[in-house]
C-alpha cells in the first residue's frame, strides 16, 4: 500500500463531504444530491464519480471487485482496481459472491447480490431528462414539481414512430413513485435487477451528483399500459457456458462475419463453466486455461 496518500486517496474532509451526500442520497432515493466532486488522478468520464463514492465507502477489510461492461479484465476496470489496491490496500477479487463492494460501469452482475454488498455505479450523465432539456436549471425545477410529462411524450413518440420504446440502455426508471432516475447506461435487460438486497450507490464525478437506492427500493421502468416494459436480451445461449438467462456480447469471429455470443458477465460465465456447463462453441474450463 502506498503511504504517500491518505487511505483510499481522498483526504478526510473530502470523504466527509461525500459521505454526507451519500447519506442524504440514501434518505431520498433517486434524487441527485449535488456534491463537490474533486479532480481525480484519472479523467472525467472514466469513473471519477464511482471512484469517489467507492473511496468514501471503503473500509480496510473490504474486498473490491471492479467491472466494466460486465468484465473484470477490461482495461479501465483493471486500472481502477489497481488504483484502490495501491491507495487503499484493500483485497480485490473477480468473484462476485466474494466481493463486499463492486464498482461497475454499464452492467449489473447476473448473480443476485446480497445484503452485505454495495454496488457502486459510474454514471456519465445522471440527469434522465438531460437529453430532452439541456438546462440544469430547468430539469431541477421539473424534478421539484414532479413534472415528467416530457419524458412520457418522448417515449410515446418512440412508439408512434417505431412501434417500440426506442431506448435500449440507460432506460429511465421511477423510484418509489417519486423521482425519475437514470440507471446509468446499463442495458435495459438489467433494469429489473435493480430491486435488490444490496445497497446501490451512483456517482457522477464531472456532473457532481450522487444518488442512491437502498435495498428493496421500488424501481419501475417507465412504460405504458398498452406498451409494457420489456427487458429484451439475446435469443441465443452463451457459446461458452450455455447460459440462457444472461446478457450476451456479440463477438465477430472471422472475416466472413461469423458471430458468437458470450456472457458479458465474465465471472458468471466462469462459475457456470466450472460447474460443468459447456456451450456450443465452448470447451471445459481446464482445457481453455491450458
Amino acid at each position: 500500500m502506498n503511504t504517500e496518500y491518505n487511505f483510499a486517496y481522498l483526504d478526510e474532509q473530502t470523504k466527509r463531504m461525500i459521505r454526507r451526500a451519500l447519506l442524504k442520497g440514501v434518505a431520498i432515493p433517486g434524487y441527485q444530491v449535488p456534491f463537490a466532486s474533486r479532480e481525480m488522478p484519472m479523467p472525467y468520464g472514466w469513473g471519477t464519480g464511482g471512484v469517489q463514492v467507492t473511496a468514501a465507502c471503503l473500509v480496510p477489510d473490504d474486498i473490491l471487485k471492479v467491472i466494466d461492461q460486465g468484465a473484470d479484465d477490461t482495461t479501465n476496470a483493471v486500472s481502477i482496481r489497481k488504483f484502490f489496491e495501491k491507495t487503499g490496500g484493500v483485497k480485490v477479487t473477480e468473484e462476485t459472491a466474494k466481493a463486499t463492494v463492486i464498482q461497475t460501469r454499464h452492467r449489473i452482475p447476473e448473480a443476485a447480490l446480497t445484503e452485505g454488498q454495495i454496488l457502486v455505479y459510474q454514471v456519465p450523465i445522471p440527469e434522465p431528462l438531460r437529453f430532452l432539456e439541456p438546462s440544469e436549471v430547468e430539469t431541477r425545477k421539473m424534478h421539484a414539481l414532479e413534472e415528467y410529462g416530457l419524458m412520457h411524450v418522448k417515449l410515446y413518440e418512440d412508439i408512434a414512430r417505431h412501434g417500440h420504446i426506442a431506448t435500449s440502455y440507460a432506460y429511465p426508471v421511477k423510484i418509489e413513485g417519486r423521482y425519475v432516475m437514470d440507471p446509468s447506461p446499463i442495458p435495459k435487460f438489467d433494469n429489473p435487477k435493480m430491486e435488490m438486497a444490496a445497497l446501490q450507490l451512483f456517482g457522477a464525478g464531472r456532473e457532481q451528483r450522487i444518488y442512491a437506492l437502498p435495498p428493496y427500493t421500488q424501481v419501475v421502468s417507465l412504460d405504458f399500459e398498452d406498451y409494457p416494459f420489456e427487458k429484451g436480451g439475446a435469443q441465443q445461449a452463451c457459446g461458452l457456458c450455455a447460459a440462457e438467462d444472461a446478457y450476451l456480447d456479440e463477438v465477430i469471429m472471422d472475416d466472413a462475419g461469423t458471430r458468437m455470443f458470450v456472457c458479458s458477465d465474465t465471472d458468471y460465465c466462469r462459475v457456470r463453466r466450472e460447474a460443468g456447463h459447456i456451450g456450443e462453441m465452448g470447451v471445459p474450463l481446464a482445457e481453455d486455461a491450458a
Binding site: 466527509r16 468514501a56 480496510p60 445497497l199 435495498p215
Partner: peptide, 13 residues
C-alpha cells in the same frame, strides 16, 4: 471514520 461511516450508511440504508 471509514469503519464508522460504513455502519452509519448501513443503518440509514
Amino acid at each position: 471514520s471509514a469503519n464508522a461511516f460504513r455502519v452509519a450508511l448501513d443503518v440509514m440504508a
